[in-house]
């Protein structure tokens, strides 16, 4: 399966890391969700070529990758904005004024919510992100900002713009795959020697 003709969407060291990571699971496709995250973090999207590559890499059909990818909302088939704001619209956040947060952000960014973005910023509403006791909240590139007020939300945008506030950009750091894996999931009988 490594003889794919498609160009790898990841740097060689990262591809090698995933190669080792595959061996942690009974089936290689188990790495698919995190692998697609990594591709997206490197390329800003997961396009057809990347899906093809990922399919070859884990030994399944591209159409299966396509089905998986579109099931989850966090993957993008189209290029995404550099800074992506997701405001929770679910019950706790709505009760605490999420609508006003969205209005403030629309005004601050000059964008209409849920209508894509301008390449630099995008603004959308999402379902519960799990910050209900600190509602309302927003997520920027994977970092949560909680207990928002409209003014606080505006200030966060300004701070990010001016580099006073950092949000994750690009891929995450990976530690090496541990050397002392038990790797006992294979079909060999266990505990017989013990």
């Amino acid at each position: 399966m490594e003889t794919s003709t498609t160009k790898a969407p990841l740097p060689p060291d990262r591809t090698a890391w995933w190669e080792r990571r595959k061996a942690c699971f009974p089936e290689a496709r188990a790495i698919l969700l995190p692998l697609l995250h990594d591709i997206q973090d490197h390329r800003g999207l997961v396009d057809g070529e990347a899906m093809q590559w990922a399919a070859d890499f884990v030994g399944i059909s591209p159409v299966e990758v396509y089905g998986v990818l579109t099931f989850y909302w966090m993957y993008d088939l189209e290029p995404r904005a550099k800074r992506r704001i997701a405001v929770c619209r679910n019950i706790s956040c709505d009760l605490m004024g999420a609508r006003r947060i969205v209005e403030a952000l629309e005004d601050e960014l000059g964008l209409e919510c849920d209508r894509g973005g301008d390449g630099d910023w995008s603004l959308r509403t999402v379902e519960c992100m799990g910050a209900c006791t600190a509602a309302p909240m927003m997520d920027v590139n994977g970092r949560y900002f909680e207990e928002l007020t409209p003014e606080k939300a505006r200030e966060i945008v300004r701070a990010i713009r001016e580099g006073r506030e950092e949000v994750p950009e690009g891929p995450a750091e990976f530690a090496p795959v541990p050397a002392n894996l038990a790797r006992s999931w294979t079909e060999e009988p266990r505990k017989e020697e013990a």
Binding site: I60, S61, V63, G67
Partner: peptide
Amino acid sequence: GEPQLTVVDR
């Protein structure tokens, strides 16, 4: 034995 179709989105 060769998937060609899938359900997309949810």
